[in-house]
Design a protein around this nucleic acid. Structure first.
Length: 308
RNA sequence: GGAGGGGUAGCGAAGUGGCUAAACGCGACGGACUGUAAAUCCGUUCCCAUCGGGUUCGAGAGUUCGAAUCUCUCCCCCUCCA
């Protein structure tokens, strides 16, 4: 029998954290963050990370496990989280994955296999340089030759994915399509995905407001301290809430403009999250709004109680 | 009253006789995604529509084979001088 795993997904600022605490309390669960940025230490305000005093004694995993200068990937996430799922079950508790990083959650729940296609930074770098010099065409044509199937799925402008497809072939001798064919995309767990959704306009207002609050709470200082540590070019600093302030520190843009950029990027991110969860995962959606929050919580708790 | 500047699609803003239903940005909406994923990338956005068609660039009238672009009149807006 497959192990039960609950996942709570949805766009940023929709209220996943608050819900997760309710679910964990009610169902004797423990929480695993399904978030690609909250793994980093010192990135608290910008990622809207839950603070220890808010956790109500519920164990949280996958938070603050990396230094901002370290790299972190889906594969790392997958491995770690699967470990924690077993660990939590061994304690007779219910694992609850809470987060908005679609691919990450997906990779845990299904038999995504990354192991054979480790990253090859040097080769990637080489290809990136080639693109700078000669444009993407030669590489895209190469991809069309070795893996025409994959080539049709990747837009040439998406350099990163063109390069990755080539990188996989270089590293493993197999094409990306072949790797995909070896996978069934079957679920590994008896998972139940709760999706929180909200009227777009309300969500966007919440996002704008939350960004202002973050700035008031000291976001700029948080980012600055990372910037001063020389983390400008790290993966972590590419997160929303961080990269937007770099022009300000460099005196290239007024602070207020950076804040606006941040709001805009967050809104756009929320939209992308919707797209992913809507089209990639079997989510049971619950429409929430500030005034019916508790009723929706009740409904979710009842539904989940019937499952576990 | 005098001297200038301006009115372009939801907004900002290019264009200054044909290649323009009109760049670009924002906003809005949709989509892709298998080791950077809070990343990276694609599409739609005057109206109707499948091709395709119909109306646009403050309003009206002209010049021209052809105008957002030239001329005239009118209506608004802004800056400066009174």
């Amino acid at each position: 029998m497959k192990k039960i795993v609950i996942a709570i997904v949805g766009p940023t600022a929709v209220g996943k954290t608050a819900l997760s605490l309710e679910v964990a309390k009610k169902l004797s669960g423990e929480i695993i963050s399904g978030d690609s940025m909250q793994v980093y230490k010192g990135m608290d305000i910008g990622t809207d990370k839950i603070r220890p005093e808010q956790m109500q004694g519920i164990p949280h995993y996958m938070l603050n496990i990396k230094e901002p200068k370290e790299s972190f990937s889906v594969a790392d996430f997958q491995k770690q989280v699967r470990y924690y799922i077993d660990y939590i079950h061994a304690k007779n508790k219910l694992p609850i994955i809470v987060g908005g990083s679609g691919l990450y959650v997906q990779a845990v729940l299904y038999d995504y296999s990354f192991t054979k296609a480790k990253r090859n930074i040097e080769y990637t770098k080489k290809l990136e340089e080639q693109v700078t010099k000669e444009g993407i065409e030669p590489l895209y044509e190469k991809l069309q030759q070795i893996d025409p199937e994959q080539a049709t799925k990747i837009h040439p402008n998406n350099h990163r994915r063109v390069i990755r497809a080539l990188e996989i072939y270089e590293t493993t001798g197999k094409t990306m399509s072949e790797h995909h064919r070896e996978q069934q995309n079957t679920p590994l767990y008896d998972h139940h995905i709760v999706g929180l959704t909200m009227k777009r306009q309300i969500l966007y207002e919440r996002i704008n407001k939350r960004v202002d609050e973050m700035v008031e709470t000291g976001l700029v200082e948080e980012v600055k301290s990372l910037y001063l540590k020389g983390y400008e070019h790290t993966e972590a600093m590419r997160g929303i809430g961080y990269k937007e302030f770099i022009p300000y520190f460099k005196n290239e843009k007024p602070l207020q403009d950076c804040v606006e950029d941040l709001k805009r990027n967050t809104r756009r991110y929320a939209k992308r999250q919707f797209t992913w969860f809507k089209n990639k995962m079997d989510v049971k959606w619950y429409n929430i709004s500030p005034d019916v929050k508790h009723e929706v919580y009740e409904k979710i708790l009842t539904d989940l109680a019937g499952i576990v």
